[in-house]
Design a protein around this nucleic acid. Structure first.
Lengths: 199, 199
DNA sequence: TAACATGCATACTGGTCGGTATGTTTATTA
DNA sequence: TAATAAACATACCGACCAGTATGCATGTTA
């Protein structure tokens, strides 16, 4: 090692850990594979992270949360028509999937399923991500009811929960079926449901 | 050991493995904990199952598949009104959950998330369970279209996918939130959607 | 009842795991 | 430039893992 760049080293570890966790889950994620992949030594890893658990937390806080914001939160914040925005998001999410990456599913849901019964730190972090997502949809639906784009009669909170649940469920089914078509077909029903929320 | 009962021993191992997998996932499931729990020796375990993997397969084939049939398949087969039956099933599923067991989520989905990218044997087994569930709904929706209980215009295949996805997604959200209320609220939207399928 | 297979028990193996002790190299700062 | 801290490297540790070798007890069958 000649040129040191601690930030770069840390980020490389974080990215490798993200991939490793996505492929094997957190518990089966191997530090040995991560340092092999990044060509970073074990000493360097433990210099940047006090433990495997803390590294996992950092993956959630710095990578997963940010990617959720980018994909699901920000596009909703900057719209005045939540219905159209949601439909667009769903198509965009389908479009980003191919037969190669469909099998990895949703990183949030993967970690949620595996770690929430085992570790409270993971559970709280993931739960706050779901909360952020759901409350963002809820608020925009309420806003839509005020500006006349969303039907007044619907329960916005229940709709928000339902939308998040349906997206996660569809991603999960598609992951297991290894099929983008399954994702598309499963989400078709959601899109029709979302249309019925329109005023 | 005085009275031998190999079937009982095998079933005890299978049940303990099911619990262990549900709590820790398959990869982190510990044979040491399973034999401690059942008070069965390691030699006996390996007499009944050739490997941990095969024991996992047996859990899916003999326990998980059967419980899915009992909870989601059989009640649908014996009905002439799929809409009412689905709504009843959902309420029944909510009713079976409490704050203690909500955190375990759906065994099928748990294993699907963890194992489908890693092991093809698990993936195929779980996929066939989802297929059985989904096609059962599909067939009954088609039947309903013929006997006049289901709207003719709907795409039954897409609806079946969507229903399964929404149930799995809601279970997943509730597991992470450790809240039956989250399950109830998330599934409320599904129930309303199912109502719209009625003729 | 003798022969054999099934069912079970114990002790052990090689390998991987996360984590640490200890040292060296590079960068910062006084 | 000397002192100090940050960044990285290597070798090792005990714990746990799935799996096995071996032997004994029980049940079945000839």
């Amino acid at each position: 090692m000649v040129n040191r760049d601690p930030d770069k080293t840390r980020l490389a570890l974080l990215n490798a850990a993200f991939d490793e966790i996505n492929q094997h889950g957190f518990q089966a994620a191997s530090l040995a594979r991560i340092i092999k992949e990044t060509k970073v030594s074990k000493g360097a890893l433990y210099h940047h992270f006090p433990s495997k658990l803390e590294m996992g937390y950092a993956v959630v806080d710095e990578l997963i949360l940010e990617s959720v914001k980018e994909m699901w939160i920000t596009p909703l914040k900057n719209t005045d028509n939540i219905i159209d925005a949601l439909l667009l998001q769903i198509d965009s999410a389908i479009g980003k999937r191919n037969e190669k990456n469909i099998c990895f599913g949703c990183p949030v849901n993967n970690l949620a399923q595996e770690m929430s019964p085992i570790d409270e730190g993971f559970r709280e972090r993931i739960n706050s991500i779901f909360d952020l997502w759901r409350t963002t949809i809820d608020e925009k639906l309420k806003e839509g009811q005020k500006n006349g784009t969303v039907k007044e009669t619907i329960n916005t909170e229940a709709s928000a929960y339902f939308i998040v649940a349906a997206i996660e469920g569809a991603t999960s089914l598609a992951k297991n079926a290894k099929s983008v078509d399954v994702l598309r077909t499963s989400l078709q029903g959601l899109k029709e449901h979302i249309e019925t929320l329109r005023k």
